[in-house]
Design a protein around this nucleic acid. Structure first.
Length: 213
DNA sequence: TTAAAGATTACCT
DNA sequence: GGTAATCTTTAAA
């Protein structure tokens, strides 16, 4: 089930990564697998992502209804961070993609903590195994300490949150695709990508609507 | 001004 | 397997 395997993923430098992110969202999402995201003392290797097409007719995207104060950064240039708060307690982080003016982004869903395990653990209680430290979009943000302070920051620059290319290329054959998680609609679009077999990839759970109070 | 839903996680039975 | 926790964003009145 990998119908979107058109663009081969290679090991790229920082400039090439920036160019990839400025292009179509699906190749950008695939290219983000294996990249490393670092904050103060903690580095995560990205193992799972989801693509959101924003204004391009994607009903699951926060930007599909047009520009609002929250999603404004998604309409800007690629390589910046779109951080949002949800369910009253969780932060999630996206990498803005596509040309300036087009609101596409890639949600970072999970990663492997490759540096600063102690620091990551200190930020999270009730974590038993290391592979669970950044297994899930809100957990990934918690492990890295990402919150609204990172909103709109340039991830490719030399700021407090830095995105860097993969140390080694992720073979195209190692990338699996499937429906996005937690999304109410658009279950027919396989825009969730992950590194096949990686233990840090989150489980697939169908979205369960919450009961009203 | 008010209300409803949400790109989730942790803890319950 | 089900649901409570918890609050921002967004749209409607």
């Amino acid at each position: 089930m990998v119908p979107y395997s058109d663009a081969p993923v290679r090991d790229v430098g920082l400039a090439a990564l920036a160019e990839l992110l400025a292009g179509p969202v699906v190749p950008a999402a695939r290219g983000l697998l294996g990249c490393r995201l670092s904050t103060d003392g903690v580095t995560v290797r990205i193992t799972e992502v989801e693509a959101y097409a924003g204004t391009a007719g994607d009903p699951a995207s926060h930007a599909h209804r047009g520009r609002t104060p929250r999603n404004a950064v998604m309409f800007g240039p690629a390589g910046h961070a779109y951080v949002y708060f949800t369910y009253g307690m969780h932060w999630c982080v996206n990498v803005v993609t596509g040309p300036d003016g087009e609101a596409s982004a890639v949600l970072l869903r999970a990663g492997e903590v490759v540096e600063g395990v102690e620091a990551a653990r200190a930020r999270r209680t009730a974590v038993r195994r290391d592979v669970d430290l950044a297994r899930g979009p809100a957990r990934l943000c918690a492990a890295l300490g990402i919150d609204k302070a990172a909103y709109g920051r340039d991830l490719l620059g030399d700021g407090p949150v830095r995105l860097r290319p993969a140390a080694g290329p992720v073979p195209d054959a190692a990338i699996a695709a499937g429906p996005r998680v937690g999304v109410t609609g658009a279950h027919d679009v396989p825009w969730r990508f992950w590194i096949a077999g990686d233990p840090t990839v989150s489980d697939y759970r169908r979205h369960v609507p919450r009961s009203r109070r």
